[in-house]
Design a protein around this nucleic acid. Structure first.
Length: 270
DNA sequence: AAAGACACCTGTCCGC
DNA sequence: TGCGGACAGGTGTCTT
């Protein structure tokens, strides 16, 4: 489900309810997520949430004792609810606050994670080797072009690699390459600097626009408030195999790259 | 170091 | 209606 826009939408959704709030209780109904939810997570109880930030697709809740790292995996969502709201089947973790609100992690496939670190979270094993934020200045044409030299993977797999740049998942990789007119099959190491320049600009535009729209709701993504996102209305190729391209008369194609579906227009993208 | 396959898990949809 | 298989928004780990 969540790529960067959905995670950022979620972060913004929960922020006003939990920032500077005291954690009263953490309820773990199902500890078996991608990694076991550690018992030390309860050290957060009684602590005040000092910041609600995001690094890549991780949401970080910082307290003076440590930081919770939350990842939504493929099917996770976080919602703000009132204390007393009955949990449903896949509601695995609640973080309950003194203001009678709670954030609830629902994750049917359990590829998500809830982790705890007492150190600088940016130095956590899963965070420290991540690539730059796509909306930051460190993600620019010089960086991407340099990093791509010698790479033999397709450009689509390259930009989806979190060690290259974070937050560009399957939907936005497909959409960005379509808008940039670049074939997803082009080899990363062979793409020109001029084309990378355009791609960088477009990735930033696409992600920023998706955040503004509250993310993409394909089947079940909901924002923290329970509302869906609206960016799916602007998808040009993702999920549109067999349909006519929105720009030309060709048909949108679907292929597999690195075990993931890729959607593209063979005429607009070369 | 880089690339590819595989793993984790549940729900849904499609063809027979 | 049932069943098998493919597929789904991610990414760490293991093998080449």
């Amino acid at each position: 489900m969540p790529e960067l826009p959905e995670v950022e939408t979620t972060r913004r959704g929960i922020l006003p309810y939990i920032d500077q709030q005291t954690v009263v209780e953490i309820i773990v109904r199902q500890p078996k997520l991608r990694w076991l939810v550690p018992d030390e997570i309860h050290d957060m109880e009684g602590e005040i949430v000092q910041s609600v930030t995001r690094r890549g697709k991780y949401i970080l809740l910082e307290t003076s004792k440590g930081t919770v790292l939350i990842h939504l995996g493929m099917s996770g969502s976080l919602r703000i609810l009132d204390v007393g709201t009955e949990p449903e089947k896949h509601d695995h973790v609640d973080i309950v606050f003194a203001n009678k609100k709670l954030i609830r992690l629902c994750d049917p496939r359990r590829f998500g994670a809830v982790l705890w670190t007492t150190k600088n979270p940016l130095k956590h094993k899963l965070i420290r080797s991540l690539g730059p934020e796509p909306l930051g200045e460190d993600f620019n044409v010089d960086y991407l072009f340099q990093f791509s030299r010698g790479r033999k993977v397709s450009i689509k797999q390259f930009i989806m690699n979190g060690h290259v740049v974070v937050g560009v998942g399957n939907i936005y990789a497909c959409e960005s390459l379509f808008k940039a007119g670049i074939s997803p099959k082009a080899l990363a190491g062979k793409v020109s600097k001029a084309r990378y320049k355009k791609l960088v600009i477009i990735i930033k535009e696409v992600l920023a626009a998706a955040i503004e729209q509250g993310g993409t709701t394909l089947k079940d993504f909901v924002r923290a408030t329970g509302k869906p996102g609206y960016f799916q209305q602007q998808l040009n190729v993702y999920g549109r195999a067999g349909e006519q391209c929105s720009v030309c008369d060709a048909t949108v194609k679907q292929i597999k790259q690195g075990q993931r579906s890729t959607f593209y227009c063979g005429k607009c993208q070369r």
